[in-house]
Amino acid sequence: MNRRSAIRNVGFLSGGIFLLPYACETTPELIYSNFPLIKRKEQNVIGQICNLILAEDPVNFPTPEKRVDFVLTMINDCGSPREISFLTNGLNSFLTSISPQQKIDFSDLLIEEQNKFIGDQLEEKSLISDFLNLLKRYSILHFKTSENYLTQYLKFEFMPGRYLGRVAV
């Protein structure tokens, strides 16, 4: 049994008490105007990839929205036509490149296999690499604009009220 199936079974056995990210479909489906064919299933895969690239950390780096929602909103609303094509074409290539013969979903791979696949593809010059790097850029933006990162790591202050020009490092 792979990791994803195991988690599904835990959810089932526990009477559905757990709300499982990317597996539970109780929320309304979001349709993005610039890529309406990317439906919930594909969005879930994108969310999974984003989390492999840079995991959400709701305890230490909470954000107002989920990573996948932010990334897709940014690409949909602010992305250039080139970025939108990176998403749509790259996702198609990604989904068909896992193992077309065996028809295995990315989700069905072991976590180590998923990581290896992402790591290998990020370095390549390919449609998939463009797609993964796009998700990486917006995932990083999401992380770096979280309250905790801005305040604790970039020393952002909303009302500094002072400027000290020569502070010893």
Partner: peptide
């Protein structure tokens, strides 16, 4: 100048992003 290193992915990327000190 506060440089951030966005190399890698996963835990390595996160660790890189958390190294945010000025580089002089």
């Amino acid at each position: 100048f506060r440089e951030t290193n966005a190399d890698g992915f996963g835990e390595q990327l996160k660790s890189n992003l958390l190294q945010t000190k000025e580089n002089g």
